[in-house]
Design a protein around this nucleic acid. Structure first.
Lengths: 337, 337
DNA sequence: CTTGGCACTTGGGTGTGTCGAGTGCTAATC
DNA sequence: GATTAGCACTCGACACACCCAAGTGCCAAG
């Protein structure tokens, strides 16, 4: 009873089940795959696999389906990531290169990913933390209303309107801008709070109140800047695969809608050497996703921002992983521009 | 066989069906409502209603359910919009007043609407067309890269990075800003293209190329400004009411995801005197929504931007309409601030 | 370790019978 | 003329029995 063949059997079970969505039995297995042994032998192998918790039978004397643990082994040790076809790669590239600005790039990316994988795609906006301050701008909209704009080197623009408690003159604002700009220009966004504190302490008393108000706004813009936004696409793919979700897809839609949940989900995944991370079914921390798998990876300069897809546990992992990886790479390349 | 009673019967059928989601028969009708006549009489009435196409029987000798036409009559002539309870109103108000900026207001609104109605909520961003230019700002990011910012009087901020084909100096940009700003300050966004054309023609030749590049960007920012964005919430409510959608909810999710479709849907509805518009089932232009109803209304100064909900045809119209109307009113009030 | 054979399990599909809610119609009644 | 009571009829839902095919587990032989 050789170990390699057992893994081969597991691989065959996963592959068959993924594309037939029906429990697969020993007979069908020897028919479709050249395993070189009889169905009885396969049955013995399957018994062992079941003991190890890698597959399970929905009911006595029915075929077997992979368990979450089985998928995990499949993903980690058996499957090979299938490279995308040349036309697919070409299509990705031209689509992404045609984008106009950052928002457009992200929008195209998420749609592309959804279409490529036939799953729900999730893309987090690029982190702004690693970038630096390229420019800041204050605009006096009204005596007590200031528009604060922060432009980062990665091209993101954040803005926010703040209210002050005392009137402010154009001239004062211009001076504030000069002082703050010279203090923080080129500073990493992650280091912004510190620099701002120093700058604030050196402000003349007359400007200090306004300075700290604006400073807080800047910190917010830099801190939870854009990386707290995510884009979704392909939710309709969930409905298409009803039946893959024994329970309703309600909890999944709920999770998708809660940006906080998705952000945590993406950021908490462990990204291994292959750079691509898979969470399978019950491995997901959030209960509503116990029937779903997430395939995600980082992208961008420091791979700090994430992107990925969410689908049923019964999923074509090799192809999906390839698509996610490819999209992440092309996106990173585009963003470097 | 009095006409008023027949309408009463229709009303009873709609109400019962909406909350029991089962075909309703003559017997159950006389039990639950004080109609003062026997079930046989009701049967006669129902026969007439069926002839008129207002109700239908799923199969011979089963109860009746309202047709789209029946719902239409119900909404137009029978139902009375139920006002919201005082605590509900209070909750709406405090929730919306706690918002920080426009994005936050819209986000809260759409979530509120979803929760209030238990349906999918759709909110279009306020139109920017009626507002005026409050300020513009150009920032030189690189010799051939300019950040163009447009701030409107309604508080919306649009920005975009444009590339030029020739280098540009800070000083030139400052002059451009002076000239353009003086030309368009206070101008209605809808009138922006005209004013920009005039201003461009008066530019010195050296600045003309850059001026027109920037002008085009400004036009875009003003034109399709923010009113082409919509927010969604409560998609999970669709899943909860599976069974209300005989077909899959796939087409509906698809429609929701296509912003273009939703925008057309919202803008094409006819808003009658009551200011609230209802599209029932097959009345919807888009085929995928033939099982769904849309309840929407305008909000804001000129009621130009829309907001509403989407749900199954089998819906509690009076309550839903009340909620949509109330949210629109409170939102309008907040935006006036 | 592999294999053929065989008894056993079980979900799914099909056919039948019953039950109850509900209708449509007719004739009597107000 | 509208309303009502009564009655025959229809049909979906449910329960039950039954069989079939797919599949398993195990044993004994190779």
């Amino acid at each position: 009873m050789s170990e390699p063949r057992r893994l081969e059997v597991l691989r065959a079970i996963v592959e068959d089940y993924v594309h037939s969505r029906e429990p697969v039995g020993s007979k069908a297995l020897v028919d479709r795959h050249q395993l070189g042994v009889s169905s009885a032998t396969i049955r013995n192998d399957m018994a062992v696999l079941e003991e190890e918790g890698l597959i399970a039978a929905p009911h006595t004397s029915s075929g077997r389906i992979p368990t979450d643990k089985g998928y995990r082994l499949f993903v980690d040790r058996i499957s090979e990531v299938k490279p995308l076809s040349a036309p697919e790669k070409k299509a990705i590239q031209t689509l992404l290169e045609g984008a106009e600005d950052l928002d457009d790039v992200m929008d195209r990316t998420v749609r592309l990913l959804a279409q490529l994988t036939n799953q729900v795609a999730v893309v987090q906006f690029p982190r702004v933390g690693g970038a630096s301050v390229r420019h800041i701008e204050f605009v006096l909209l009204a005596p007590q209303q200031i528009l604060v704009v922060l432009i980062a080197t990665n091209g993101t623009v954040q803005q926010r309107i703040v209210r002050t408690h005392a009137d402010l003159q154009e001239a004062e604002l211009a001076e504030l801008k000069q002082r703050i700009l010279s203090a923080v220009s080129g500073v990493k966004l992650s280091a912004l709070p510190g620099e701002l504190a120093v700058a604030a302490s050196q402000l003349p008393p007359a400007l200090r109140a306004h300075g700290s108000t604006i400073g807080r706004a800047l910190e917010q813009l830099a801190g939870l800047g854009r990386d707290d936004r995510i884009l979704l696409a392909g939710t309709a793919n969930l409905a298409r695969s009803t039946g893959d979700f024994p329970l309703s897809i309600g909890p999944i839609l709920e999770a998708l809608e809660e940006q906080v949940v998705m952000l945590r989900l993406l950021s908490e995944m462990e990204y291994d050497a292959r750079g691509i991370s898979v969470r399978i079914g019950s491995e997901n921390p959030y209960g509503g996703l116990s029937e779903a798998s997430v395939v995600a990876t980082g992208y961008g300069p420091d791979a700090g921002a994430k992107l990925g897809i969410l689908g049923p546990t019964r999923m074509d992992y090799p192809t999906t992983m390839a698509a996610v990886r490819a999209v992440a790479r092309y996106l990173s390349r585009i963003l470097e521009e």
